[in-house]
Design a protein around this nucleic acid. Structure first.
Length: 552
RNA sequence: GCGCCUAUAGCUCAGUCGGAUUAGAGCACCGGCCUCCGGAGCCGGGAGCGCAGGUUCGAGUCCUGCUAGGCGCACCA
């Protein structure tokens, strides 16, 4: 901020002296952190953007601007140096005072959310997983669960109000199919000779449910009721598993409730009023092709039954009516074709489609022993989310899913995730945290006084100055900005990458700089740096829902 | 046929709002570092933007076309 102000002032001065035309007073430019640390802490491209309109060489413009900037920032205690580099970038170098204040802020600054609050908070509903209650959750569900959960954490951390929600598809034909599958398995257990339904669910879990059903001493029932019962059992299992994974929903919204309520009929009324509903071939159609969809969609079938879309529209209408002004849905890649009709339907209902976002979470391919684990739902061979958690644990599973952007298909290396070594990124990050606590404990054992975090001052940090120390502090200074960037772009993988970078810089610092030494002041300063690093690593991991252990 | 996603090092992936004659990590491979705070660590080394155009002072990034892979195009959910 202050850098941008200084640049504006420098441009203003040049305009007033006639060194630049008036038209360039408000020229656009950016200020950003250069990728290469040797280019300083902040850089602006202003000389490049104004070179053409000013018809002067960017390099010469840069020199002229830098001259003005030097006198302007002279009294700024946070900026040490201004220089022109490359084709005409103007680089600013942060002062040691600035870096010291970064650490003071990290150690005494209270809740992280206080550093990252947005000026425009929104009420966000994040709907994710929403797996059919007809079978166990699979690894793709685990990926979506990690993403949705962290979206909420990121949004809440940046001052929004995010609410995680699960839509339970407990209506429609699939529940009946589940019921008929269960019926057949129950009959088998009773020794009856029955044929398993052709389209039934072949998984072993249906047999387990049949056993449970008989053990509970429940009477025979119609397939619909059997299906409803089975779905309830499966849902309870899902809920427990998600909790174990660190994901809890504010609300489980049942499709059956939507269908029983007035919502679907209200949707039809509004669409009719707004002219987006028509009848053809005995069915009621949504005129979605008028709003960007490939074709119109049936809402009420010829037999009077609702299609999936109608209750879903009613559900999303309900979301808006509950006061949410931003809806985020995480869907699998097999549902991307559904986006256009959903968006069209919401627009037809009078909602702004910009407030409805869909993130497509791409498939997960499991690798084990260097080979792909075959996944076939039809063949009944698949790896469930529960098996994955049993195998690799919560921290590794979450971190691996969150390391990659949602839009990339993911190769999940089970062997690597299980490995307790430096090859495993999640251990690498956690190790940095544990190592710091090892140092703090070691200080106590040696009688080295460990300063309270709150006691840190600019002056107490003055002994820091080695490259490894400063590089680490610079990286720590990015923390709030990384949270904001990850939240705004809904890209948790940035934060995962960031925490690995912090860990790497900490390990380098640790190797190069002995923390517990003879120099009391230096030791105190480095202990503060350790504490601040541990805090950033822990906070970042916690946002990702990953533990930051003190011992490993 | 139409639509969406993907294509960056041998492998798995980053790459911010288009920025720096030098495109980064990790794994794998090669070579170094423990009388000392946690070696689950550190330091060094080679190799790459699918193809062809275009926009721009500047393109891995934006646009067009092509190629390859994945997914989707229901009165299923």
């Amino acid at each position: 901020m202050r850098t941008e102000g200084a640049i504006r002032r420098a441009v203003g001065e040049m305009v007033e002296r006639g060194e630049l035309p008036e038209s360039l007073r408000d020229v656009g430019f950016t200020v950003e952190r250069p990728r290469d640390p040797s280019h300083g802490d902040l850089a602006t491209n202003i000389a490049l953007t104004m070179a053409k309109p000013a018809s002067r060489s960017p390099r010469a413009l840069g020199e002229a601007l830098a001259g003005h900037l030097r006198t302007i920032v002279l009294e700024d205690e946070y900026i040490d140096d201004v220089e022109v580099a490359g084709p005409g970038f103007i680089n600013f170098r942060a002062s040691r005072t600035y870096l010291a204040d970064v650490l003071v802020g990290l150690l005494t600054g209270g809740e992280v959310s206080g550093w990252t609050e947005t000026a425009q908070p929104r009420d966000v509903l994040v709907e994710f997983v929403s797996a059919n209650p007809t079978g166990p959750m699979l690894v793709v569900n685990a990926r979506a669960a990690a993403l949705g959960d962290v979206y909420c954490r990121l949004l809440n951390m940046t001052g929004h109000r995010a609410s995680p929600e699960y839509y339970v598809n407990d209506a429609g034909g699939q529940i009946v199919t589940l019921g008929r599958s269960l019926e057949a398995r129950i009959a088998e257990l009773r020794g009856e000779d029955v044929e398993f339904p052709e389209d039934g669910y072949p998984g072993a879990y249906v047999r387990d449910l049949a056993e449970r059903y008989l053990e509970a001493g429940l009477a025979s029932a119609a397939p619909t009721d059997l299906g409803a019962w089975a779905a309830l059992q499966i849902l309870a299992d899902q809920r427990a598993l998600l909790k174990r994974y660190g994901v809890e929903f504010d609300r489980w919204f049942h499709e059956s409730e939507v269908r029983e309520g007035a919502g679907p009929e209200e949707v039809l009324d509004i669409l009719r009023e707004r002219g987006y509903l028509y009848e053809e071939d005995g069915a009621l159609w949504l005129a979605s092709s008028a709003l960007g969809d490939d074709k119109d969609r049936v809402l009420v079938k010829g037999d009077g039954e609702y299609t999936y879309l109608l209750p879903d529209l009613a559900y999303h209408k309900d979301k808006f009516e509950r006061g949410f002004d931003r809806l985020i849905n995480i869907w699998g890649p097999d549902h991307h074709g559904y986006i256009a009709r959903m968006r069209a339907g919401l627009e037809a209902l009078g909602f702004s489609p910009e407030n409805f976002e869909v993130v497509i979470s791409q498939w997960v391919r499991l690798l084990s022993g260097g080979r792909e684990v075959s996944m076939s739902k039809r063949g009944g061979t698949y790896v469930t989310m529960e098996e994955l958690l049993d195998e690799v644990g919560r921290d590794a599973a979450r971190f691996f899913f969150l390391m990659r952007s949602a839009s990339s298909p993911l190769d999940f290396d089970m062997d690597l995730a299980k490995e307790q070594s430096n090859e495993n990124p999640v251990y690498y990050a956690q190790y940095a945290h544990a190592r710091i606590f090892g140092i703090l404990a070691g200080a106590g054992e040696r009688g080295v006084p460990v300063p309270e975090a709150a006691s840190v001052t600019r002056e107490s940090l003055a002994p820091l100055g080695v490259d490894e120390e400063l590089a680490l502090v610079r990286k720590l200074a990015d923390f709030p900005g990384e949270i904001v960037a990850a939240a705004e772009s809904l890209e948790p993988h940035r934060l995962a990458a960031y925490v690995l970078e912090v860990a790497a810089l900490f390990h380098s610092f640790y190797t190069e700089c002995r923390v517990l030494g003879d120099d009391v002041d230096l030791t105190r300063a480095r202990l503060h740096l350790c504490r601040a690093s541990a805090r950033v690593v822990a906070e970042a991991l916690h946002i990702l829902g990953v533990n930051a252990p003190e011992h490993m």
